[in-house]
Design a protein around this nucleic acid. Structure first.
Ligand SMILES: [Zn+2]
Ligand SMILES: [Zn+2]
Ligand SMILES: [Zn+2]
Ligand SMILES: [Zn+2]
Lengths: 148, 148
DNA sequence: CTTGTCCCTATAGCTGCTACAGGGTGCAAT
DNA sequence: ATTGCACCCTGTAGCAGCTATAGGGACAAG
């Protein structure tokens, strides 16, 4: 009726360090320990971890998930926050798709234009050296994190 | 005829720490210093930095850019590597677009299904708790970094 | 008794920056 | 002269979300 950390990790397709990491962040509760000091979990913990992993796979951030979990813990509360989080992510995803589609076009075009076979005559290199050869103002798309 | 680090940074829309960071990684050369120990750059360095920023804005990674720069430095070399890098990124971008489009659909659907206004009856929360309610096997899409 | 598998803590690494802390230099105005 | 400002320096730590390693303990099967 109780699970080791390895067990819930495997059940949910996570790995062990990740579960401990979630615990440290307060997403997973501190479980009780057996006499040897090892973590023991119950079915609710398993569900909670599955929730987290599912939300992660849908692109939610850990802070967002924390919020969603606290809502899930209080069924009588209004869900407006949850809905807002979804809407926010949807908007971000759409922006990102749009940016990536522009990149795709740009790269496709660069690739298609390339007739050279030495780097001196390579359209790829040439284009990188000169943004004038680009179609889009993709420069605005640059963000430090998670670009491709 | 020479630039301070602040100057080339501004010219290329980078910032100063970033330029130093590129130097540390070997993307930018170590420039000469004036008598006070401050970095001084020439026009070629400016071009090189512009190349890097442009490539970044097109989604290339720093290791890829290092490779592209070394090709750009040797015009007589074959450009097959550059072309391969572009192809590789194009494939990644397409995968990512595809994954994001599936996410978009999934979130859109979750949002549309949500009729509840307490978290106990919220389709968002319910779906996160149960992947059966999803259309796609988006779970495969999960990657640690840069998800949304 | 060794081997293997699991568990523990604590820490460092990944990407590509960005933001300090703590100091120096040089120019212009007061 | 000194005050202020803008720029420069090095070195380190932080972001997200893990992942991997070091260095150790516990327990069962062969
Ligand atoms: Zn080429
Ligand atoms: Zn461009
Ligand atoms: Zn709702
Ligand atoms: Zn799902």
């Amino acid at each position: 009726m109780d699970y080791s950390i390895g067990k819930i990790a495997k059940e949910t397709g996570s790995n062990v360090q990740t579960v401990r990491y979630y615990e440290k962040l307060g997403l997973m509760p501190e479980p009780w320990r057996n006499q040897a000091g090892q973590r023991r979990y119950g079915p609710n913990d398993l569900k909670r971890l599955a929730f987290i992993r599912h939300a992660r796979s849908l692109g939610f951030s850990l802070p967002q998930i924390k919020e969603l979990l606290s809502l899930a813990d209080q069924p009588e509360k209004p869900c407006a926050t949850a809905d807002a989080i979804v809407a926010e992510n949807l908007a971000k995803i759409r922006d990102r798709i749009h940016a990536l589609q522009q990149l795709e076009q740009e790269l496709k075009r660069i690739q298609a234009c390339d007739m050279g076979n030495t780097s001196g005559s390579c359209r790829v290199i040439e284009t990188l050296a000169n943004h004038q050869l680009c179609l889009h103002d993709h420069h605005q798309n640059i963000e430090s994190k998670s670009f491709v």
